[in-house]
Structure formats: C-alpha cells, structure tokens
Design a protein around this nucleic acid. Structure first.
Lengths: 156, 156
DNA sequence: TGAAAACCCTGTAGCGACTCCAATGTCAAG
DNA sequence: CTTGACATTGGAGTCGCTACAGGGTTTTCA
C-alpha cells in the first residue's frame, strides 16, 4: 500500500500520515525501489487507532501513551483508566462551556433581525455593553477609574 | 494606565495585550517618557470588547471584522448578522459532536473498572476494535468530518 | 542609602496538530 | 511523447497565545 492508498483507506491526509511518522507515532514505513513508502496491515491498524483516539479528542501525547500500552503491555492498566477519566473530565467541562456559549450567541442573535445601519445594530451594541459590564464587574475597580491612576496595586 | 494595570483591569495577560497591539487589534499605545506604554479608557474598552468576543469563542479574524464595524460604521449591518450566525453554527456543531464524544467516553470508561493487566484492559480492546471497525467502513468514503477542532478554548 | 522586588521594554522562539508549498522524481494512460 | 496523477524532501505557515532572554526603570522596604 502506498501513502495515497493508506490515506484513502483511513480518511487521513497524506501529509498527516507523514507527520505521524516524523513524530514517531507510526513506525517508519518500508520503501519501494523508487523510494515510495510501502505500508502494510500493521500501519493501517495503527493509523486507524490513532484517528479513533483523535476522534475522541484525545491529545497526541495521550494517544502516544496508549500506543505504548499496546506496544508493551503492563500488568496494570490503572493508567489507562486515569487517562480516559481525565479525557472525560475535559470533554464534560468543554461541553458545559459550549452550552453556555450557544445560549449567549442565540440571545445575541435575537438582538438584530433586520438590516439597518451598523450604528444601530443591536448585536454590536450588546457586545460593547456586555464587554463594558465585564470589565467593570469581573476584574476589580481599576476599570472604572480614569486614566492617571498610580499605586494601589493588588496582588494577583 | 500602564500595561500591567490594564491587564489587571481586564484579566488579560500583558504579553497578550502586546500581541494584540502587534497584530493591530489594539491601536499602538502612547508612550511615557521612559518608554512604557500608556493606556486610556479607549484601550480598556476595546480590549474588553475583544475579550468578550473571544469568550464567545470567535476567532480573531471575526473580532477584527467587528472592530472594523465599530471603527467605521456602515449603513448595513447584515454582515454582523452573518458573522454571528456563522459562529452559532460552529458552536452548535461542536456542541453536538461534544455530546457524542462524552457518551462514547463514558461507555469506554465502563469497560474497565478494575486494575488488571493491560492485555486484558477492556478500554484498550474496545479502542482497537472500534478503530478497526472504522477503518473497514470508511474505506474510500470522504464523508468524515475533519478532526482538528482547534477552536477549543480553555477558560482563562 | 542601598538592595531587592516588581514592573517594563524588545525580539525571538515555542506550543499542538496539522497544512501548504516548492522543487524534484516516478509512473500509467492516451 | 506529453499529460496528469502520484510520490519524495525540507521548510515555512497557521492560530492564539505563552515563554523566555537580556536588558532597563520604578517602587518598596530595611
């Protein structure tokens, strides 16, 4: 199998495959007489594994760890569990913030349903107002003070 | 206001502020006699606006567009709407795939509740099997969504 | 007064996970 | 024999920061 075929079989870009090889996630492929990479079933399996993990949004460092578990089995898989748990935590956290994000955007979108001058655009007004509110409420009193303030630092 | 104060007021790292200036999102600050940047209310507002948009997960290109609308108002805000709509579409799509992701990971996690040898780890087995199934089914079909969701922001 | 801490400057390099490009080589079809 | 699809390499670019290195300035405290 040449790189293009492997790419088609797994839905992975050729450049990405070479990148995985460069970074040691895929073993270096054998070469044909003309220098082209020659792949076998092993590569296909491994690449599919990587992509599946990536589809689960795991960072490559974690995928590398899992690959290592496959390559050199241990007599304790607790680390695998930990890894999946951590991933789950990440995903759940992002899910939560994404939901809030969606709500905010929907609200924002509702502010402007017609075309008019940008000076009257409810969305822009809302964005500006919200930003001002945040600067005032979220990060201390410095925001409200006029320009020339000196001293009065707070520890971060 | 010097850069540190602005940073504290908005919760933005100094390096990030300088980065925004370098990339033209913030106008170049005036300088004090010693070369330190001097910021005023305008900068604070603008920076808060940028951060609010970023909190809505908008890419900086879009934020730049919005800033441009603020700087040079048009007599048509349809582009603003389009921009927000696009962002909403992005967020909804990600939300959906995140939900699926969470379910998959939960299922995966359920495969292994105890410590044992990695050769017997249900999670690893499941991952390998799922990957193989995918490689088989997606043969030649380019219908799979791209994996890299790099808009994934960590909260500050 | 002097030292230490905290702040600021510029410029450059690094991150993750690709993605794109140029310049070149190889091979099958028409 | 040319065209086009495929392959190779090395290097640079992407996004949105973040982290130095190596200097200068200001504030604080003993």
């Amino acid at each position: 199998m040449r790189i293009g075929e492997l790419g088609k079989a797994t839905g992975v870009d050729r450049e990405t495959i070479r990148y995985y090889e460069r970074t040691g996630m895929l073993p270096a492929a054998a070469r044909l007489a003309n220098g082209y990479r020659a792949y076998g079933a092993v590569h296909l399996e491994r690449l599919a594994f990587i992509r599946h993990c990536r589809a689960l949004d795991m960072p490559l460092v974690d995928v590398r760890l899992l690959l290592d578990f496959l390559d050199r089995p241990r007599n304790d898989c607790a680390d695998v569990n930990r890894l999946i748990d951590a991933q789950l935590v990440r995903v759940r956290a992002r899910l939560k913030s994404m939901r809030a994000l969606g709500r905010q955007l929907e609200q924002l979108r509702g502010r402007c349903n017609a075309k008019h001058a940008t000076t009257d655009c409810g969305i822009l007004h809302e964005l500006v107002a919200a930003a001002q509110g945040e600067a005032r409420t979220c990060h201390g009193d410095a925001a409200t003070a006029p320009i020339g303030m000196k001293g009065a630092r707070k520890t971060r």
